[in-house]
Lab assay of single mutants.
Amino acid sequence: NQASVVANQLIPINTALTLVMMRSEVVTPVGIPAEDIPRLVSMQVNRAVPLGTTLMPDMVRGYA
């Protein structure tokens, strides 16, 4: 089972991601792999991401 990136807090739209906003968790469906967390830092979300939501590739500008 692969860990995915999950929002550690509410992340408002257009917010640049920081390490404290994300955690890794084994979830279904699988989202962005946890090993990509360092790559996600400073990328912006293109929608509001509620606490506990799995980050999907289409939620992060420039990721996919």
Rank of each mutant, 00 (worst) to 15 (best):
N1V: 15
N1Y: 13
N1A: 15
Q2P: 09
Q2M: 14
V5M: 02
V5C: 04
V5R: 00
V6I: 15
V6W: 02
A7L: 04
Q9D: 10
Q9H: 10
L10R: 10
I11N: 01
I11C: 03
P12L: 07
I13D: 10
I13P: 14
I13M: 09
I13K: 14
N14I: 02
N14V: 03
N14F: 06
N14L: 07
N14S: 06
T15N: 05
T15W: 06
A16G: 10
A16T: 08
T18D: 07
T18W: 03
L19N: 07
L19E: 07
V20Q: 12
V20A: 14
M21V: 04
M22E: 00
M22T: 02
M22R: 00
M22G: 01
R23A: 13
S24A: 12
S24K: 06
E25Y: 11
V26E: 07
V26Q: 14
V26I: 12
V27Y: 02
V27T: 11
T28L: 14
V30L: 10
G31V: 02
G31W: 02
G31S: 02
I32E: 01
I32P: 00
P33Q: 06
P33H: 12
A34W: 07
A34T: 12
A34S: 13
E35M: 14
D36G: 11
I37E: 04
R39F: 11
R39A: 09
R39I: 11
L40W: 02
V41S: 04
V41A: 04
S42Y: 07
S42P: 02
S42A: 11
S42R: 12
M43C: 04
Q44D: 07
Q44Y: 10
V45C: 03
N46D: 12
N46M: 12
R47Y: 13
R47T: 09
R47A: 10
A48L: 09
A48P: 07
V49Q: 02
V49H: 02
V49C: 04
V49A: 08
P50E: 14
L51F: 11
G52F: 05
T53Q: 08
T54G: 03
L55Y: 00
M56L: 10
P57R: 05
P57G: 11
P57A: 15
D58Q: 09
D58T: 12
M59S: 06
V60K: 00
V60C: 02
R61P: 12
G62V: 05
Y63Q: 04
